[in-house]
Amino acid sequence: MRGIEVVASGLATTIQDIGRIKYQSAGFPSSGAIDHQAHCLANALVNNEENAATIEYCLMGPTLKFTMQTFIALTGGTVQPQLNSHIVPMNQAVPVHSGDVLKIGNLKHGRFGYLAVAGGGIQVPEVLGSKSTTLRIELGGFKGRTLEEGDLLPTCDVYTMPSLASRKVSVETNNTTQIRFVKGPQWNLFSEQAQHKFMVQTYHISNQADRMGYRLRGKAIEVSQSNMLSEGTVLGNVQITRDGSPIVLLADRQTTGGYPVIATVIAADLGKLIQFSNQMAFNFVLTDIETAVKELKQQIKKIQDLRKLWQQKRYMEPIGPARKAALKIGKLF
């Protein structure tokens, strides 16, 4: 079988798409790429639809050997990837050939990174409408587990990429320390003092941070100890647990929860929060739904515009055989 061979697994490396959204009412976590935006960008770069399965890794990327020809793109947390010991850029479509070895290495910034592969991504079977992995219940992805040395991931051969030369983006490094939120469904259960505290204090991401959620470090927030009836959860919900610490609910979150939700991080800022290091100090800033919608639509449009641009350029800058040959010749030295 042709595809991608896992030489070294990296950390918590899984197959993800945009998630198993429709089965939450039966208790299935939606899962999917934890940094949705980075996943979508990676797919756009290699001309995949947004739901194509990518490889997600955490803090340490895998080393992979290609046994077919295709194009790849790396997005998300900053890495210095090497293709056959030559550094290749992130956020750009890069051709790979049979026998090439890609060493992604450690993340210098951020927590999660993505590798998209042209030709529709990693070809694992769909389970309940998604290729995403949910580790806790051993569902989906590659045999329901993290990737291991020796795994062979099926992919499709791709020989050409429309407007390859222009398939790159500069991803601005975001230095903001402000995370915007809208009021959560239980906002009014909190005292004004507690609401105020939530907004003025500085938070850090604690060591209890994984795909299910990030517990935050900060001064405790006063929370009513009365029991709340469980209800459906949403990506970005900020629950306040009994001890007054917030948990931001992420991709692998439980579908229902019984802790009061003080806030929901706006989708446009979620990628930033997800990539913060433990040292990063940040604040929550209240915004309104209109702004949240506008910001998310802008993010979606950015990628749509790139896709359009690359489609339009298709016949202006074809990749010629000369370039392919040059790459092969380059590899001889």
């Binding site: 959204i21 429709k22 939450q24 009412s25 939606s30 009836l229 469980s230 209800e231 459906g232 959860t233 949403v234 579908t255 229902t256 919608v293 998310l296 639509k297 979606i300």
Partner: peptide, 18 residues
């Protein structure tokens, strides 16, 4: 409509803003 999750006394409905 992307998802709907019944709770004890709620229905949580997610939709595509596009």
């Amino acid at each position: 409509i992307l998802a709907s999750i019944p709770g004890y006394h709620t229905l949580t409905i997610s939709f595509d803003i596009r």
